[in-house]
Design a protein around this nucleic acid. Structure first.
Lengths: 211, 211
DNA sequence: CAGCAGGCAGAACATCCGTACTGAACCCTG
DNA sequence: CAGGGTTCAGTACGGATGTTCTGCCTGCTG
C-alpha cells in the first residue's frame, strides 16, 4: 500500500469527520473548501488516488458517492482490533512493539468507546489456565495498549525475565522494587526488581465469550 | 410521537437499508424508485413529516442531506445493552424476566456481533469479590440472555435458593442432580438439586474494563 | 352538500455537483 | 538540458437533485 500525501491524509480525515458530524458524506466542493484546495479537479484527482489505494469507495456520477473503507478511523462506532498472538506462561511473547501487524491471528470488532480513546491497540488471546490467578481464563481476550512506561495501578502485560513468564498484574512502584498485585484479592502480590521486568503494555479490557 | 403511515415506515426502512449498503444516504429519487412512488414531491412531502416527527434530520438544499436519528435499527454495528442490576452474593436478584427495563443503571454500547445474534439481552454489573471463584472480578460486566432452560455446558446465572446466593457457573445435568462447575479449574464443583436452583439466564460475554 | 385537510401525481425550475479539458509548476531521471 | 510523470489551478459542461407549483382525489365534518 502506497503512503498517502499530506493532502490525501487531510482529505481522508475531513471525510471521516464530515460523515461523523453530518451523517452523510461531503461533496467534492465540501472537501475543496474544508481542506483549503483551490480547485474541484484537485479533489477529484486525489479522491481517485484514495480509491485506487482502497481507502475509499466512489460511486461514479453520484453526488456524495463516497464511503470510507479502512478499519479504524475515529468516529466509527466499532474498531477492528487485531489479535496478534497467544499469551501463555513459559512462552515468550513475540515482538509486538514493532509494526508486526500484518498477520493477525484474527480480527476483533470492538465498540470504539470501550477503547477509552486509545487508537493503536492490539489484542492477545490467552492460552491455557496459567493466568487464573489474574482472573483470566483459557480463551479470554486481552486488549492492550502498547506502552513501556505505566502508572501505578495500571494493569500491565509483563514479562518476567528470570522466571521466563508472561503475566497480567496491577503495577505499583514500591521503593526500589515493584509490586505486582494479582486481580484476585485472595492471592498474594509478588515483588520484582525493575531489571527483571519487561513491560509490554497496559491492559484496557478483558473479553470472555461464553456463548 | 405520531404513528407513521405504511409509506413512511417503508421510506424509513429504505433509507436505513440504503445507508447500510451504500455508505451514503439516498436521494429523493432513489427513495422514489425504491419505494414505488410516482413523484418526487410525494417523497419530499413524507420526508418532511419524518423530519417533523424527528425520525430523520434533513439538510435543506443539500443532495442526500439525510440522517437517521433513531437509536437502534437492525444492521447497526453496535447495540445498546441495558445494565439492569447489580449482582452480588447474599443479595437477591431483582425480577429480570419481566419487562423491567425502563430504569437501567447504565447503558452499554457493545459490538453487535459479540452478541451472537441474540437480541433481548441485558447486562449485570458484579458487586464485590464473591464471584472470584468464577473468575469474575469486582466491577465486571456480565451480558446475559434470559432463559429458564439451558443446555449442558452453558454458563448460567443461577440463584441458589437455600444458600441465598447468586452465582455464575457452568451447568451440567448429572442424574437427578445438577453439577455447577466453576470456571476456575482449580475449584471443586458443587452439586445441587433442581428444586434449589433458579436459572435466570445464560451468560454470553464477560467484560472487564481496566483502563 | 360545501369546506377543508391530508395524501398524492406530474411537471418545471434553479441549483448542486461530478467530471472533463487545458495549461502550468515542480520534481525526477537519463 | 530534454522529457515524462505527478500534482495542481481555473473553467466549463451536463446530468443529478432538492424544491416548488398546480391540480386531483378521498375522507371527514358541520
Amino acid at each position: 500500500m502506497k503512503k498517502l500525501s499530506a493532502r490525501q491524509e487531510r482529505i481522508l480525515q475531513f471525510i471521516t469527520d464530515f460523515i461523523e458530524e453530518q451523517g452523510y458524506p461531503p461533496t467534492v466542493r465540501d472537501i475543496q473548501h474544508g481542506c483549503d484546495i483551490s480547485s474541484t479537479s484537485v479533489v477529484d484527482y486525489n479522491l481517485n488516488i484514495l480509491q485506487r489505494e482502497e481507502f475509499i469507495r466512489r460511486s461514479p456520477e453520484i453526488s456524495r458517492g463516497l464511503e470510507i473503507l479502512k478499519g479504524h478511523r475515529p468516529g466509527a462506532r466499532t474498531t477492528y482490533v487485531p489479535v496478534l498472538a497467544y499469551i501463555a506462561a513459559g512462552q515468550p511473547l513475540p515482538d509486538l512493539s514493532a509494526e508486526h501487524r500484518d498477520a493477525p491471528l484474527e480480527i476483533l470488532e470492538v465498540a470504539t468507546n470501550r477503547l477509552n480513546g486509545e487508537s493503536d491497540v492490539y489484542a492477545l488471546r490467552v492460552r491455557g489456565t496459567s493466568m487464573i490467578d489474574a482472573l483470566i481464563a483459557d480463551g479470554d481476550i486481552v486488549i492492550v495498549k502498547p506502552a513501556d512506561t505505566v502508572k501505578d495501578g495500571d494493569t500491565v502485560v509483563a514479562w518476567l525475565k528470570r522466571e521466563n513468564e508472561a503475566t497480567l498484574k496491577r503495577f505499583y512502584h514500591e521503593g526500589d522494587r515493584i509490586r505486582l498485585q494479582p486481580a484476585n484479592t485472595r492471592m498474594e502480590p509478588i515483588y520484582v526488581s525493575p531489571d527483571n521486568l519487561d513491560i509490554q503494555g497496559k491492559v484496557i479490557t478483558v473479553l470472555r465469550d461464553l456463548a
